[in-house]
Design a protein around this nucleic acid. Structure first.
Lengths: 341, 341
DNA sequence: CTGAAAGCGCTTACAG
DNA sequence: CTGAAAGCGCTTACAG
């Protein structure tokens, strides 16, 4: 039988209240008493029953998700994942709040973090924007005892406790490894379309891609990256021009969002566009493009998993526990039309 | 505030005991009373607090894992995953038992399932062997109210409540899609090494592989499958002979275990063996082979995830709940050297 | 067939 | 600084 607070109280000859004070590091216990109780706890190998404690405390968890606005599919999937996870967690006395921040507006994000701190939530999950105002807000939240986790896009050098997202440098390398082989016998140019190089994840993917292309597939000429702002319209224009201007284009890596536009351009180009294409995020559009052979591979981060992981980590921190980092690592999924889930 | 049993009792003018009887479908309640209580429950939208119920019941969960014996790395990883998961669950009043069954011995597996039923565990997870004696044992366990989930290898047509594993037909197709492109400009023969075609997962992988090769890459000649019994020694011999006999071998798909032997053979063959190779399961050997370029891709099923998924599903069933099938789907991971976790 | 009371392991006012 | 008692939401003997 696992020892309980009663066992500790009995052995140490103190009351339950005192045991509880020691257990929860609350003041008002003579040093000598505290030491005795602590020894008893250690001797018995006592471990608190968190479920019972939460019941007694009527503990509820409130976590806030700050996500960018925007109508691209991935952001939408992320929002849906938050809602679904929230539904599943209702029975666990856990509430997920969600707010939208103007995309790429660091000040706005920093403000909302501060507001969440005032609201005294139990944890904050943000799609980070790489800016010192955000770092400062994260530091303030941490100082206030509220754990912050980043999701999708990280904020290195900040005090966030965890990043629930993929290694984007590795993702870029993976794209190059695949695309290089898929293009194999052909010779020619490779087009790269990003959302914005202001976004850290896009910069990292690009760096990884270029590194591997240069090192292992130097025969191909990687064209200067195009920035489509994750906007389908803009991406469509860029892709169309790309296809028109380079008759010897032999591959495309789309490392941002807005793939609806890319697919349109490729379809319009018809036979001229029968070249390997690798994109990111398994949205509905990407699924269809994979199925009909327009995309050859899609690299994906599982948004729902990232949300669940973020919640687990925030909850662990709220309980003063460590998360299991190995279990929380988000993998880079590679999907061909054959292994789509 | 969520309604509690007290609210129901008050509204329905009955005692807590009666509420509990209705809630848990226990006998000894007048039909009229039961109906009244049930209506009250529905009206209030009451949902039981499982944590509180478990505390009151001192509920513990005991789940049994029946895994095959064998010293191949994947089986070892699976065992370790069970141990690690068991450690993590200790605080949740959940115990995982593990027994080893002689590999491919259906009768032995059936016997152990029956024994677990007698021990009255709360759920049984098996690496299924495709045999009617096993189906019968699964049916008996189900009949006794003990949920059975299959892991790694499924048992279609049985009463198992869930399969925690990958779609092996899709895995075979994926392997063909990748290998076909990797071999691209070359022309020639493709070697396939399985463990045993008696194993359903191996049969399915083979079927998927052959289907896609024939349909999309008909120029390659897929050689008759070799069976290495998942034994490194045997696999090494087979691979060596394969490489010697076919100067025009341009690719290898290793769909079973025992890859240590395959790597040895490839290393010994040196430059003669610079051909695309795709294998299964990200073991230590496979990792190293990917890193140094001997393997080009590894398809993987995450053993630890499968174990955790099996536990979640068994627990849900033990609580009379439904598992979230979407969340429990095990994906086919594709690993290149660039996206290894 | 029904209910009052005690208890699961922990926490929280409140009193001293 | 310390403790007795009540309570979190549910279940379980036991008595009637």
């Amino acid at each position: 039988m696992r020892p309980t607070v009663h066992d500790i109280a009995r052995m140490a000859n103190v009351s339950l209240a005192t045991v509880d004070r020691v257990l929860n590091n609350r003041p008002g216990v003579r040093e000598k008493t505290r030491a005795l109780v602590e020894k008893t706890i250690a001797d018995l190998g006592y471990v608190r029953d968190v479920a019972a404690a939460n019941l007694a405390k009527k503990r509820r968890y409130v976590f806030e998700f700050l996500l960018p606005e925007g109508d691209n599919s991935f952001i939408r999937m992320l929002g849906e994942a938050v809602h679904e996870t929230a539904d599943a967690l209702k029975l666990d006395r856990t509430e997920l709040l969600m707010r939208r921040i103007t995309a790429f507006d660091a000040e706005a994000l920093a403000k909302e973090i501060e507001a969440a701190v005032v609201r005294d939530v139990d944890g904050i999950a943000i799609v980070a924007i790489d800016d010192d105002s955000v770092r400062a807000a994260v530091a303030a939240a941490t100082e206030a005892g509220i754990p912050v986790v980043t999701i999708v896009s990280d904020l290195p050098g900040s005090r966030r406790v965890h990043f629930a997202g993929i290694d984007n440098l590795a993702a870029g390398k993976t794209a190059a490894s695949l695309l290089g082989r898929f293009m194999a016998p052909r010779q020619g140019k490779v087009g790269v379309i990003a959302g914005s190089l202001k976004a850290r994840d896009h910069r990292e993917r690009l760096a990884g891609f270029e590194e591997v292309m240069q090192r292992y597939f130097p025969a191909f000429q990687v064209l200067p990256v195009l920035e489509g702002a994750d906007d389908p319209k803009r991406v469509e224009e860029l892709a169309s021009v790309l296809l028109e201007n380079h008759a010897d284009l032999v591959g495309i890596y789309s490392l941002g969002a807005g793939n609806r536009g890319l697919v349109k351009a490729l379809k319009k180009a018809g036979d001229r566009a029968l070249l390997p294409v690798i994109a990111h995020e398994l949205t509905a559009v990407a699924r269809e493009a994979l199925t009909c052979g327009i995309f050859d591979a899609v690299l994906n981060q599982d948004a729902a998993r990232e949300v669940r992981s973020a919640v687990r980590v925030m909850k662990a921190h709220a309980d003063g526990l460590e998360a299991n980092e190995a279990q929380e690592r988000i993998r880079i999924d590679i999907f061909l039309k054959d292994n789509m889930p």
